[in-house]
Simulated scan of single mutants.
Amino acid sequence: MLYEHFDLIESIGLDLLFASIFFFIGMAIKDVLKQANVPPFGRKIVWLVLFLGCAGFIAKGLIQLSWEGSGLN
């Protein structure tokens, strides 16, 4: 049973790993911005860049799912 679903378990685990990495990166950036007294405009730019990185990762996953679903592997 486990061997049959190994690919699914592996992909879910990898997605959870990346989600936790993004969470910890966000917490580290929040701490650095707080301690460095960065102005509000700079904070918004930093969070925008972090969000775009996450959005790119999510877009890549959605594109990959759509290509695999249509048979374009």
Rank of each mutant, 00 (worst) to 15 (best):
L65G: 05
I63L: 10
G26A: 01
A28I: 05
W67V: 08
I45M: 11
A59R: 11
K34L: 06
I12M: 06
Q35S: 15
L65W: 06
F41P: 01
F57P: 01
I25C: 02
L52A: 13
N73H: 14
H5E: 08
L8T: 02
E4N: 10
S20Y: 10
V32C: 11
G61D: 14
E68K: 10
E68N: 07
S70E: 13
D7I: 07
L17V: 07
L72H: 02
P40F: 09
F22G: 01
V32Y: 06
K30D: 00
F24P: 01
L16W: 03
Q64L: 13
I9R: 15
W47S: 01
A19Q: 03
L16G: 00
A36G: 05
F18A: 05
I58V: 11
V46T: 12
I25P: 01
E4M: 08
F22A: 11
K44R: 04
M1D: 15
G71R: 04
I45P: 08
F6V: 12
Q35F: 09
H5Q: 15
G71F: 05
E68P: 00
L72Q: 04
K44I: 08
A28F: 06
E4D: 13
Y3W: 10
L17I: 07
E10A: 04
N73L: 07
I9S: 09
P40K: 03
D7F: 13
I25V: 14
L52I: 05
L52P: 03
A28E: 06
L62W: 04
H5I: 06
I25R: 00
L14Y: 01
S66W: 06
D15H: 03
I45Q: 08
R43H: 10
S20R: 14
G71V: 12
V46R: 01
G56Y: 08
F6A: 15
K34R: 15
L52C: 06
V49L: 14
W47L: 03
V46H: 09
N37A: 15
F51V: 13
V46M: 15
L62E: 04
G56A: 09
G71H: 02
I63K: 04
G56S: 10
I21L: 11
N37G: 08
D31T: 10
F41A: 11
L2C: 02
Q64N: 09
F6H: 15
L48R: 13
